[in-house]
Amino acid sequence: MNIVIVGAGKGGVSLIESIAKLEDTAIVLVVDANLEAPGITLAKGLGIQYAQSLEDIDKFSVDTIIEATGKESVAQALNVRFGSRCNIIDSHGARLIMSLVERDIKTLHRLNDQLVTINSTTGIVQEQLLEISSSIETIHDISMKLNDSSQASTQYIQESDKIVKYVNGIAKQTKILGINATIEAARAGEYGRGFAVVAEEVQKLANSSEGFANEINNILKHLAEEIQKVFNEVKRLEHLSQTQVQASDQVNQAVANLIDDANFK
């Protein structure tokens, strides 16, 4: 459909802005006596032809003429000259069209402002999500290091336990040796009295060594239990960090999709 707009004032500008966006509709000419009118300036920017005289309409194949000046004389002149050739929409119809157009334009501007806000907000959200992802990865790295440390500590405890068992074995052998020495000292009677004192001290040392070995063994046992708890919590932390990374990636993708949709619209 080819359209001519007569009148390039405020109403004409609204009509040009709206109709220029329609498919299967073309503004072939904008007419106004004032070539400095805002509608003429807009037509120049959009590559639409313009003129000062109604006679120039004869040069074009026109389906509809919209009279946007509001002047009765202009409407009459259009009806007399072109009424039999095409549809004429007078100022009353044009005013209705312009009010609808202005409302649509305001709605579009409001939607554009909302899209700008959405883009700005989603950009901030993406930045925050990237920081969260980075911190989650750091937590993951820390949990892996803690996991390695707990495994190494467990290995050291196992080695220490072997040493304690070895010391405990020596203590038992020393204790048996002290008992045997006491028996031999008793057999020697008066001559073995000094040796009996030494045997008694050897037994005390064996008993002390065995007691210390048992205490160390208990401490190592409790330490191993605590390290196992740390290991379990590290595993749990690792699982949670992986879950957070996946959730963060999904949110990032959702935000990216939202931005794409907003830009597409």
Rank of each mutant, 00 (worst) to 15 (best):
T154D: 07
R110E: 11
I179W: 04
L96P: 02
E201P: 03
V198N: 10
G12A: 01
R110S: 11
K229A: 13
A75K: 05
I27E: 02
L223S: 11
E137Y: 09
R236I: 09
D141A: 13
N112G: 06
K172Y: 07
A152H: 11
L29C: 07
L29M: 03
L220T: 02
D161H: 15
Q155S: 13
L15R: 00
G194Q: 14
A51I: 05
S208T: 09
S160V: 10
H109R: 09
Q114R: 09
D58Q: 03
D56Q: 12
N252L: 14
T121R: 14
N218E: 14
K162N: 13
G12D: 01
N257A: 10
T154P: 00
S209N: 06
L100R: 10
M1W: 01
H222F: 10
S53K: 00
V4T: 02
D161V: 15
N2R: 14
G169F: 02
Q155D: 10
E200A: 06
V31K: 11
I89V: 15
S135R: 04
Q151Y: 15
D32L: 02
G194M: 13
E238D: 10
A256R: 01
K71S: 07
K106D: 15
Q128K: 10
A247K: 09
N180G: 11
G7V: 01
I105F: 06
V13N: 08
Q52Y: 00
Q242L: 11
S91P: 07
A171C: 02
I132E: 15
D58M: 04
S73F: 13
L54V: 10
V251R: 06
D261P: 05
E131M: 09
G169M: 06
D261E: 15
A247F: 03
D58Y: 03
S120R: 15
N79P: 01
C86A: 12
I65Q: 04
I19N: 00
I170C: 09
G123V: 05
E23Q: 08
T41Y: 00
I216H: 04
S160T: 09
R193G: 10
A186C: 11
Q126N: 08
F231G: 06
T182G: 02
E137F: 07
K221T: 15
S53P: 00
K44P: 07
I142V: 06
Y156K: 07
A20V: 13
E225Q: 09
I105E: 14
V31H: 01
I163L: 12
S91N: 12
V4M: 00
Y50N: 08
Q155K: 13
V197Y: 14
D161S: 15
G70I: 01
V28P: 05
V255Y: 05
P38D: 04
